[in-house]
Design a protein around this nucleic acid. Structure first.
Lengths: 148, 148
DNA sequence: TTGCTTGCAAAGGATTTGCAACATG
DNA sequence: CATGTTGCAAATCCTTTGCAAGCAA
């Protein structure tokens, strides 16, 4: 069995919560996807496998997955919560293209070091952070220059 | 007259929009505050000066101010849009305390340089960015250690 | 007078919640 | 059987929008 499933079952046990087919289905579906997904997108996919499922269940499940540290929230500032896998998926930041909406994961350890340094400077203890870079990706830049 | 007011009037003129007492009052009130403010907070303050004002007007005005580059949006991830002054207020990032909710502005030019470097590496043209550091401020750390 | 603005209330989108029926331990 | 869980619909929160009346240019 996938390690994530074991983690989730352990989490359920500790909280006196139950394992249900709906929860298993949603977890399965979530784990099959890399990248970020919104509750509604996940609901649409899950519904194809079991049309009787309600979207409230998906919303509730995403909250559980976040508590269990199997998912983490990402916020692209468009008023929609998105989630990505947390377990075994190291932290990264995001670039969001203002042209086509494409997002790219950005990893840079120097940024993380620098953030720690800043935190220390201000007397803060850092637990986590979010960094979003906005701009235009290579494709959109090319398209724009053609237009002009 | 405050330079910001002139900028706003010029903005209105260019867009064939009108100057109204409501807009002046909201702009005045917005400019009097440093730091970030939500539409609802701004509405509450404005209402004290003119109880007949509607909150839709405040929401609409904040959109205008953002277009006019007098305000900029900040997003602390709590589903509420906040605004801070943009004109003559250089970009900065934010630390948000997970204990007391306090936010502190963080300025660090190295971060900005590093972001540009990363963007170049990935072939992106950066227009702007957002960085949020989360953790515990000094006060909250002290309180926590006393509790234990 | 023209047409942008206003305040109100209703609508909107994403998410949460109350509840009765249901299923799990 | 106790109690957690589900799907549904209604409720919630913040924000936007339609509209008739009002007002600036």
């Amino acid at each position: 069995m996938k390690i994530e499933k074991k983690i989730f079952q352990k989490f359920l046990g500790e909280k006196d919560l139950w394992d249900t087919p709906q929860r298993e289905l949603i977890l399965d579906t979530f784990l099959q996807r890399e990248g970020h997904i919104s509750a509604e997108e996940l609901y649409d996919i899950v519904k194809k496998r079991d049309s009787s499922i309600g979207q409230a269940t998906v919303y509730r499940m995403l909250k559980l997955l976040t508590e269990a540290k199997l998912a983490r929230e990402v916020d692209f500032g468009d008023n929609v919560k998105r989630y990505e896998q947390d377990y075994n998926h190291p932290h990264h930041d995001h670039f969001v293209c203002r042209g086509c909406g494409k997002t790219v994961e950005v990893v840079n350890s120097l940024i993380e070091e620098l953030q720690q340094k800043i935190a220390k400077q201000y007397g803060f203890e850092l637990t986590d952070h979010a960094m979003y870079l906005y701009g235009f990706c290579e494709d959109c830049r090319k398209k724009n220059s053609k237009k002009q």
